[in-house]
């Protein structure tokens, strides 16, 4: 990383963690916390979808992992009395492991075939949540307690959310932090050898195999990282809403995760974050149009994808920096 991108990252972190809360406090629009918390968490799930795009697979099944992650966390908190913060990584790991078993057969498929199967996966997960005894069926799991405290060696890292005056702010801060960490990890993956191998897979699987890349293993690895993101996003989301139902994440959510990636730009690590922000706010802004909301929203997405096939980040405004990055990458290697 050069000085300029480091500076950009620092400014971004300050805006997200300091400027936004200050502005919300000034304007009194406390409802924005929930909106922005949602954006942060949905953008984590979208980041996972983006990473499956990165190995050349269209993933319309992230809702399934968000739902599974949510249930794992909810069940562990409610039935095993576990601290939420412990269930968060467990939800991610559960989804990563689950996706290995699901991914091994389906990742052989390409293009529209893979996309179709993942789409169905979301529906299968919803039906499983309806049917399994542990999920409490259609009634869902409600009144999930707020996250407890985390302390290591007597030092409190995170306070008990029940003791907080403003848990909304706390949820926003942890969600935004989680998002920043996830995107940092994704950025690092993409710029390390793993990313380079994923690009080789995306561009030519046969050739990747012939240079010695274990392509089926790499596909499963990438898919499980992707699903890990889906799982922790789902778990965190459920902690915020304190309830989960089989319909908490559905096919429409899976489609949205994918659209966030398209819209932000498949060629850019931070594309899905921007895409999620724009789509989520776009949908909210159109609320006043009542019954035309979906019509206008869908038409605008179609238009945007037609006009900007490489995503919002492909606009000239952002391109200069991206190109500079690419150039530097070449020199750096």
């Amino acid at each position: 990383m050069n000085i300029r991108s480091l500076l950009a990252v620092i400014v971004f972190i300050i805006v997200v963690l300091v400027a936004v809360p200050v502005l919300i406090a000034k304007s009194g629009r406390w409802d924005f916390y929930y909106t922005l918390t949602s954006v942060a968490l949905l953008s984590i799930a979208s980041a996972g979808v983006w990473f499956t795009f990165y190995i050349g697979r269209i993933n319309i099944g992230q809702g399934a992992y968000a739902l599974a992650g949510g249930y794992v966390s909810a069940v562990l908190v409610m039935k095993a009395d576990m601290n939420f913060w412990l269930t968060l990584p467990l939800a991610g790991i559960f989804c990563a492991v689950l996706s290995v078993f699901i991914g091994m057969p389906i990742l052989r498929l390409r293009g529209v075939y893979f996309a179709m199967v993942t789409l169905i996966l979301t529906e299968v997960m919803r039906l499983a949540a309806l049917a399994l005894p542990v999920t409490n069926g259609a009634k869902g799991i409600t009144s999930i307690p707020l996250p407890g405290a985390v302390s290591i060696g007597g030092v409190t890292l995170l306070p008990d959310f029940n003791t907080l005056e403003n848990p909304k702010l706390a949820f926003y801060l942890v969600s935004a932090t989680l998002m920043i960490i996830c995107y940092g990890v994704l950025w690092r993956i993409v710029n390390s050898r793993l990313g380079h191998l994923c690009r080789s897979l995306q561009q030519n699987e046969e050739l990747a195999a012939s240079i010695g890349v274990n392509i089926s293993w790499l596909r499963v690895l990438a898919y499980s990282i992707s699903s890990f993101f889906g799982g922790i996003a789902g778990a965190m989301f459920i902690a915020v809403s304190q309830s989960i139902y089989p319909s908490s994440f559905q096919v429409a959510d899976s489609v949205n995760f994918m659209l966030n990636c398209f819209l932000g730009g498949l060629g850019y690590v931070f594309g899905p974050m921007l895409g999620t922000l724009v789509l989520y706010f776009g949908w909210d802004l159109l609320f006043s149009t009542g019954k035309y909301q979906l019509l206008i929203y869908s038409s605008m997405i179609i238009l945007l994808i037609l006009l900007l096939p490489n995503g919002i980040l492909s606009l000239g405004l952002f391109n200069r920096k991206i190109k500079a990055d690419k150039h530097r990458d070449q020199e750096g290697q």
Partner: peptide, 12 residues
Amino acid sequence: FRAMTVRDNIIV
């Protein structure tokens, strides 16, 4: 690998 530079093709 179409979208990589010649050098990146060889490095990977």
